[in-house]
């Protein structure tokens, strides 16, 4: 799967940023024929594996 763009689809240079509407980021929209990533059974299995392998929540010292 190709990497995601490192920039969201941007409107014209924001010389008037308070003006709306502008283009909503759209590069994450599924393309025709592209499976929904969130229904990928491999991801579900990997998430289950991660939950099994990481330790249970552990109280931490209070920090700054």
């Amino acid at each position: 799967m190709p990497a995601m763009p490192t920039e969201l689809a941007a409107p014209e240079a924001p010389t008037k940023p308070a003006e709306t509407p502008v283009e909503v980021p759209s590069r994450q929209d599924p393309q025709p024929g592209e499976p929904d990533k969130q229904d990928d059974p491999d991801i579900d299995e990997q998430i289950k594996r991660i939950i099994r392998e990481i330790p249970d929540p552990t109280p931490q010292p209070g920090g700054q």
Binding site: M4, E7, L8, A9, A10, P11, A13, P14, P17, T20, P21, V22, E23, V24, P25, S26, Q28
Partner: peptide, 25 residues
Amino acid sequence: TDWTLRQWATILNGLEMDPLRLAGY
């Protein structure tokens, strides 16, 4: 600076119109 300004404008519009589209960012 230009990257920040462009992405700042875009993210605010995204938050206003549909936050879920910002998943991953």
